[in-house]
């Protein structure tokens, strides 16, 4: 059977691939279950000497617990290869000397342990999931209405993601609600923000033109990566929906693949494409 991926060949071949960024949820795994072939695909990338980083908007777990969870599922990776929004948010808060009111999941609080949360002068919204209550939303709303210079941060702006029992609302729903109520515009710390991608890029020591991002979110992963000069690959796993994502009005992926395994196959065969084109 022929692999039915699509690739924008000229954009794809414009420079050699030296590094790969992988989204986690919907690319490596759904919920607690590895997507078939993805564990081996990560191993293949490592063997070929490509630099690898895991860039995620996951905020239901601390960086440490997220790494451990992936290891338990069967992935081989190190905590310092994982880039979630919470540590980036902590750096931003420290830089701006802001004390946050945290509307986040209790399991991610440990990443904020060194941040002063007394007399809050901004609100940080993460994927608090079942910890989004009216009372907590209202407390955040009232603080933002009382502050002279209110600031609202959001750890990503995803619409939804796929769990084992179906699609789940992501943080974007609740951030949008607070924006509508307060008239503020939230600053995104996480994908698709270019400054968020800049940290793992710098860590790899590569130029964005040398890196491919693979994700299941057409806007946050593919659109965000392309905006900062990377190639963006969309996988047909996780929350992917053909009717909505394959003909997105604003984002055209550099390639669309069935899953991570096929994406890795495409990356590793890119050199042979090149020779094909040269022969013509």
């Amino acid at each position: 059977m022929l692999p039915n991926y699509t690739v924008n060949i000229m954009a794809w071949l414009r420079s050699p691939i030296k590094g790969v960024m992988l989204d986690i949820s919907g690319v490596l795994k759904n919920g607690n279950v590895a997507i078939p072939g993805s564990i081996e695909a990560v191993q293949r990338l490592r063997k070929c000497g490509l630099k690898l980083r895991f860039v995620t908007n996951e905020t239901q777990l601390s960086r440490h617990d997220l790494t451990e969870k992936l290891r338990r599922i069967g992935f081989q990776l190190h905590e310092n290869e994982v880039f979630p929004p919470a540590p980036a948010m902590v750096e931003t808060l420290k830089g701006l000397r802001l004390n946050p009111m945290l509307l986040v999941h209790p399991k991610v609080l440990i990443d904020f342990k060194d941040v002063d949360q007394s007399n809050p002068n901004c609100v940080v919204v993460g994927d608090a999931a079942e910890h989004f209550t009216y009372e907590r939303m209202n407390s955040a709303f009232r603080l933002l209405m009382e502050l002279k210079n209110p600031k609202l941060f959001t750890l990503g702006r995803g619409r939804y993601y796929l769990e084992e029992d179906g699609l789940c609302l992501d943080v974007g729903c609740f951030t949008t609600a607070l924006e509508f109520a307060t008239g503020l515009k939230a600053e995104v710390v996480g994908k698709p923000s270019s400054s968020f991608f800049a940290t793992p890029l710098k860590d790899m020591g590569l130029d964005s033109s040398e890196v491919v991002m693979i994700g299941d979110d057409i806007e946050s992963d593919v659109g965000g990566a392309q905006k900062c000069g990377m190639r963006g690959v969309l996988v047909r796993t996780g929350k992917f929906r053909p009717e909505r994502d394959e003909n997105h009005p604003n984002v055209k992926p550099d390639a669309v693949v069935n899953d991570l395994a096929q994406g890795v196959e495409l990356i590793l065969s890119s050199e042979s494409f090149k020779s094909l084109i040269k022969h013509e």
Binding site: F141, M145, C173, T176, A177, E179, F180, A181
Partner: peptide, 19 residues
């Protein structure tokens, strides 16, 4: 007790997530 969120923000959030 002060200002409280109405239905609008939650409608807006559902609109955003569902398109």
């Amino acid at each position: 007790e002060g200002l409280s969120l109405g239905p609008g923000p939650f409608v807006e959030g559902l609109e955003f997530a569902s398109g």
